[in-house]
Amino acid sequence: MRLFVGVPIPQAMAEAVGEVCQTWARKLRSRVAWVRPALMHVTLKFLGEVPPAQVPAIQSALEALAAPAFSLAPQGAGFFPSAARPRVFWLGFGEGAPELRNLAQGLEAALEPLGFAPETRPFTGHVTLARIKDAAPGDPWLQAAQAVAALQLPVFAVDRMVLWQSILGPQGPRYQPVREYLLSRG
């Protein structure tokens, strides 16, 4: 099973961002795989291919993880690794970003004893909007990022995380929730 742990984002937010992305998709010559709004989320930890027999141990580790609920404010947009060499186009966060990072670090610590190596790169909470396969010279990527950053997106509650199974297919991936884990209130 191909698994990851993430935070869902509100559907209305994903649809608003998706509309802006579709407007820019028509203006760009780059070869791009746009993320469908229904699949937008914040990845906390990608687990990769996992034997089904290991899933109960993962579920137990996630159940035991004590983390508080918090609010998250969408803010800014950008690129990995950089605007000069865009490979991933993302939506970022302001308020709540430290709490999101703490949740990801807690998850890393909970899963490391099960054989999941900690991520070596610093965690940057984001929603992937597109994967850029081949950036065409002169495409206005910075303007696309400014258009996404200018959206008036509401703060939302992060009150759960989800263990998802990613099922790859000819039409792209499909994410099936395996189990949700509520974060504590107060």
Rank of each mutant, 00 (worst) to 15 (best):
I9E: 07
I9M: 04
A14T: 05
C21G: 12
A25K: 11
R26V: 10
R31I: 01
A33C: 03
W34R: 06
V35T: 10
R36Y: 10
P37L: 07
M40W: 06
T43I: 01
L47V: 01
G48H: 04
G48K: 01
P52S: 02
A53T: 11
A53E: 15
I58Y: 13
I58V: 14
Q59W: 09
A61M: 11
E63P: 13
A64S: 15
L65I: 06
A66W: 09
A69C: 09
F70H: 03
S71G: 15
P74W: 13
F79E: 01
F79K: 00
F79N: 00
P81C: 15
S82G: 10
A84P: 11
R85Y: 14
R87I: 10
W90K: 02
G92E: 12
G94R: 03
E95Y: 08
P98N: 11
E99Q: 15
R101N: 13
L103P: 08
Q105M: 14
A110F: 04
P113V: 00
A117R: 13
T124P: 13
T128L: 09
I132T: 01
I132Y: 01
K133R: 15
K133M: 11
A136F: 09
A144D: 07
A147N: 03
A150C: 03
A150F: 02
L151G: 03
L153V: 04
P154I: 02
V155N: 05
V155Y: 02
L163C: 08
G169T: 01
R174F: 11
Q176E: 14
P177S: 00
P177L: 00
R179W: 07
Y181D: 06
L182F: 10
S184P: 00
G186D: 04
